[in-house]
Structure formats: C-alpha cells, structure tokens
Simulated assay, not measured.
Amino acid sequence: MGKNDLLLDSYSKYNIKPQFNGSIKNPAKSCFLSSKNPSIDDYDYSFCTNTEKHKKTILLFGDSHVAEFSKAIREKYWNYNIIQATASGCPPIINVKGDGTCQTLFKMVFNQIIKEKQIDIVIVGANWSAFALTNDVIPGIKETNELLKEKIPSVKFISQTKNFPAALPMLIMNSKNISEIIPEKSSRDFYNKMKKELPSVDFIDIYNYGCKNDKCILLNDDNIPMFFDNNHYTYEWTKSIVNELF
C-alpha cells in the first residue's frame, strides 16, 4: 500500500466533529444531531443560537449537507453570528416527514428561531435526492423559500450534491482511471430537476464544483479526496467551496 493509499484509507475513520459541529465546547451537546446524539435534548440551544447585537447573523439550516460546511463558514465569516440548526434524517422544508428529532428541530427553526432572532442570511441544504421518496421535496423547497424570504433578506439553498455508489476514497484506491468514477444517476437527475423546476430559488450550485469541460477533479493538489464517504465533502474541499461560492 503506497503513501496515497494510506491517506485514502484513513478516511474510513474520518472524525466529523470539528468540521460539522462548529466551535461547540460542551462535548455532551451538539449543533448537529445524528444517530450518535439522537435526542433533541442534545441540541445546545443557548450556544447554537447565541447572537451578539452588533453583528450580522447567518443561519445554517438543514441536514449534514449544511453541517459539513460549518467550520469553513465560521472561519470565513468570523465576524458574523452563526446560528446552526442541523440534524440528519429529514429535509429542512415545511411539513417535513421523517425522523422525530429532526422534525422537532426544524419546526423549532420555523416556529421559534426565525421569529426570535434577527437573521440576515440563511443557508439551507440537504442531500435532497435522499428524501425524494418520503417528502414532496420540490414543492417543499418552493414553499420554504417563500416563507423564509418573508423574514430573512437573503435566502440561499445549497444544490443537490453528487452521490457516489461507494465511499469515494475507496473508489479512487480501487480505480485504474479516476476519470471513470461517476456519480449515481439519481443524484444527477435530481440536481437537474431542481434547477429546472425551481427557477426562483437562489442556489449555491455546488454539484459541478471541480468540473471543467466535462472533466471533474476528485482529488485536490494535496491528494485530498472530495468526499470522505460517498456524499460528504472533506473539510479541505468545504473550505475551497465556501471561499469561492459562499
């Protein structure tokens, strides 16, 4: 196993906490709820929604596909308040269906956070295609966008992300030609569907990030893979994306 293979293999034990959870200091609490901390009681409301009056405020709202940008956004927008309400299990839309904890947190966003806090920018995102069978995602995004725009000056949705058939580092290790590694058709089709059917939504379009003239880079100059699993960006890639697109 060569040096690059050792690096790629290390992503099987990737620690998401520093990247997904901002700068939270209490290890028993979180701003990102998942199967490892599935209770709404694990959400540190006082820390995750804390704001100072003299600063502008960004709300990060959605599942792990927003949480993964937490560290990079906090670094770029260090002089902003960052409110983070993120949980895996369902999409951040009105009338959401899915896991009880994420439903509770997302309803808290609609019924409490956006009403109590003066928010300047909201960034909403999810692995949208993963919820297409359980939720009316396209109409839900449209309605959610309209609702948020009533309260918040700048409303941005992160587009659908690529999904690969297996963890990208393993695909790269086992591939003789990286250019032959392509994302799953379902994620590509849903990305195209969102762009076509939601023209009024302001998207941060990340699906084709790293692509030019139909050629897509999956490793950066330091041989860091785009994803650590099959659909979540590594920190180094989130930093580049945030600096260029957010």
Rank of each mutant, 00 (worst) to 15 (best):
V122K: 06
F106N: 03
P91Q: 00
W128V: 13
I172T: 08
A130S: 10
N127S: 15
L105S: 07
L171R: 10
V96D: 12
I123E: 07
A130C: 07
V122Q: 07
Q112P: 01
K142T: 11
W128P: 10
E143V: 14
F110E: 06
D136L: 14
T86S: 03
A87G: 03
L147P: 11
N111L: 06
G125V: 00
N145E: 02
V109E: 07
A130R: 07
I152A: 13
P153F: 00
N135G: 01
A130K: 05
I141C: 09
D120S: 12
K176H: 14
I152H: 13
I119F: 11
G89K: 03
T101H: 08
S88C: 02
G140V: 03
N145V: 00
T104M: 06
K107G: 08
A167Y: 10
P139F: 14
V124G: 02
N174W: 00
N95V: 08
Q118Y: 07
N135C: 00
T101W: 00
L133I: 04
N111M: 09
K115E: 15
I152P: 11
A132W: 09
G98T: 00
A130V: 11
F157G: 00
S154W: 04
A85N: 10
N163D: 12
V155W: 02
L133E: 13
E116W: 01
L105E: 06
P91I: 03
I119E: 13
A85H: 00
K107W: 01
E143Y: 08
N127T: 14
I94S: 03
N163L: 14
D99L: 02
T144V: 09
K117V: 03
Q118H: 13
L105M: 04
